[in-house]
Design a protein around this nucleic acid. Sequence first.
DNA 1: CTTCACTACTTCTCTAGAGATGTAGAAGCG
DNA 2: CGCTTCTACATCTCTAGAGAAGTAGTGAAG
Lengths: 252, 252
Amino acid sequence: MSSRNAGRQPKYQRIAAELRAAIEAGEYGPGERLPGENDLMATYEVARMTARQALGVLQAEGVVEARKGAGVFVRDFRPIRRRGIERLAHAGWGEGRSVWATDAEGRELAVDLVEVHEGDAPPVIAGVLDLADGSRVCIRRRRYTLDGKPVLLATSYLAADLVSGTPITRPDTGPGGIYARLAELGRKPVRFREEIRSRMPNADEVERLELPSGVPVVLVARTAFDAEGAAVEVNDMVLDSSAYVLEYGFEA
Amino acid sequence: MSSRNAGRQPKYQRIAAELRAAIEAGEYGPGERLPGENDLMATYEVARMTARQALGVLQAEGVVEARKGAGVFVRDFRPIRRRGIERLAHAGWGEGRSVWATDAEGRELAVDLVEVHEGDAPPVIAGVLDLADGSRVCIRRRRYTLDGKPVLLATSYLAADLVSGTPITRPDTGPGGIYARLAELGRKPVRFREEIRSRMPNADEVERLELPSGVPVVLVARTAFDAEGAAVEVNDMVLDSSAYVLEYGFEA
DNA sequence: CTTCACTACTTCTCTAGAGATGTAGAAGCG
DNA sequence: CGCTTCTACATCTCTAGAGAAGTAGTGAAG
């Protein structure tokens, strides 16, 4: 080659590290444009593919975002806070300052798309809801947006036997939402379990959440239990990880 | 060029999509080797860099893992479960099947590295602990491994005024850990708040957690409050997202 | 004043090569 | 049998080019 690098690491890593340091030092603030392919080719005297690799590292880290035809820009992080508790009026919680700053809570989530239909229960869902394999379930898909940008995909599953003929099977479920309707059916949810994990999004999620590359998704699977301890609803949520901070509280 | 692609999307995306489909169809199971650069170059008649780009897509998604000199392999996902509640004997919780399968709970976490020192409080930590800027804090860093692989980095911050001279400032804190020691000081934690977010790891985290590319980290910041509602400890955790499912429960 | 075509610039995609470096199994040696 | 060395093969890094495609600003036409 060719590729004999001065230090001990590849050129593209070195270039990426220098840019990263410059960003952390505040030389390039959020939203600001930073040197592109052509600039890096000139200043570091490397080939286009090498300069692109360096920028690719920062994109994969979610630090910067490339806009075709325009340039490469520093990304910013202004999440909203989602509380597991305290949405249900559990006053006294959450005292003390938070670790991560979140935006003014003024901004509100808006439902963007709603789609309701009946279908076969996926095996995992059937297991959680304690239904026979292949049982029918009501599937409610929603997309939430924040200031126009989609941030959350939610899919609820409820046993078709339980909810057919109720407003739950219609896009608009009426005041109080599906939990109020479940209460009217004598199956009011009283306990919730949320399971959380994170991974990189698949192509479908990238499209529906309009995710830039380098941003993982957080998966929250919420199961609602009624007073008898039976699972009445499973809500499968996919969140844009750059838009959310989740918060939970519990006692010792 | 050159780059006139049959369909409508770039060649490397098409190749990646085909491989992804093959994996999802079970043609390549977890841990199995799949066609590498040279194979793709031959079967699709593309240049090396193009074949690499296709594999790079799947790596960024965390679907596959490349081992230099060996090949490209399908990754598997076998996380462990971490409960926010119920570790503290809250029986009756967590009934019903879970959405994501987790491994036999037999495997145990082992502390790998411990490091304790006193230092200046980072501004954010000082804010949460309600200390003056630049106050001294005791900083406890730990790394946990699961079957030899590091999965969690934890950093605890406690006010130096509170804990100096106690076993908390030593690597081994004695039976019951730091919470038992805090109780002896009359500052027993009774409430916890956990804030969760996710992002791609930085270079340091990649190294310390031995993360393959395409795996995000989950950040959990836990604040422990005593009976007076004062924050006594902040624990900053960085988890390998492929190793964990977090679980929380709460009542309506 | 608005709209549209043009243009300079940007990132994106791809080619065809080649040396560097790590891996795993085979061959050989003590 | 156990260890080392060799070797074929794998991914990794990088070069120097070039056409495709999107963006934003300018200036002319309506």
